[in-house]
Amino acid sequence: MGNIDIRSVLTLALIASSFRMATPIIFATMGGIFSSHTGIFNVAMEGFLLIGAFFAVYGSVQTGSPLGGMLFAIVSCLLASLIFAILHLELKANPIIVGLGMNIFAIGMTNYLLTALLDSTGVYKSNLIIGFTQIQIPVIETVPVLGDLVSGHFPLVYIAFLTVYVVYLILYKTPFGFHLRSVGEKIDAAESIGVNPKKMKYYGLLVSGLLCAFGGTFLSLSYLNLFGEGMVAGRGWLALAAINFGGMRPVPSMIGCLIFGFMDALAVRLQQFGLPSQVVLMLPYATTIIVLLVSAIIARKKRMAGIGKQDDVDVSVATSSKKVEV
């Protein structure tokens, strides 16, 4: 247990599996960025991922196709986020409390449906679940290092990284993105130009539901084809930490996701070396706390460096004040 060769741990396969582990977190993070930019800190993503994962499995069993499963996941997550949106936006409930209520509701619902629809408790595993298959990218596949890292992933892994770029384009390059972000940053400005903040908040929540459906589908229909009630394991919360880390910007937040993904992958890898699983499985969660701390330290350092340059306003600090304080 004591002698583990670092080189045998830090392999290309480890990096490649970090991408895989980061994928569901990236989806949730990008969805969360959307709602955060409309001023809603979406704490229900944990529940959305769970709902997505369950219905992906159920849909796959019903339709015999992973795409069918994904469709089920999308519809159910959109419905869940619609309920969230109605409770918060129409019935004026506190979004944090509603979000936490949604999580509890999601646990209850999947728990119940697992028994009622799939006749299992805790875990459902079956040959009837048809998952996605890996994609081997021609040519790149044969390039030594690159091939190991980039080729042979499940389609949703590529889609996750594509999503980061698309979210960036939508939020920062389109009129819609400008309007949406103005709602979260300065709602008066949005209203003054005729943007309907409520509508944007609906969009924000529905997009976070949609992307959590992708994340949930990946959890249950790629790599492991099963549904387990504890399988989301805090990834919705890790996504919130990643958003915080990246200051709501898509690419920096993605880097946060990759750090968490790496820790997940490392935890799995270290278990194979006989370290007690209970200890290594703490890694991703402990890392999250450390990442939050480190980003707070960096932010403060930046501010300190700005002191004295009196007329030089530090935009990054000022804009980061948008972060939701709870």
């Binding site: 390059k173 389109t174 309007h179 300065k186 400005a189 209203e191 130009i193 804009t319």
Partner: peptide, 28 residues
């Protein structure tokens, strides 16, 4: 209004044209 309705992180031009941005395809 007395209290400005400008988005702090946008440029002045982006604020001025907010809502009526000239477009290129789907982009601003």
């Amino acid at each position: 209004h007395q209290h400005f309705k400008l988005v702090p992180s946008y440029t002045l031009a982006q604020n001025i044209a907010l809502g009526v941005e000239p477009k290129k395809g789907i982009f601003v």
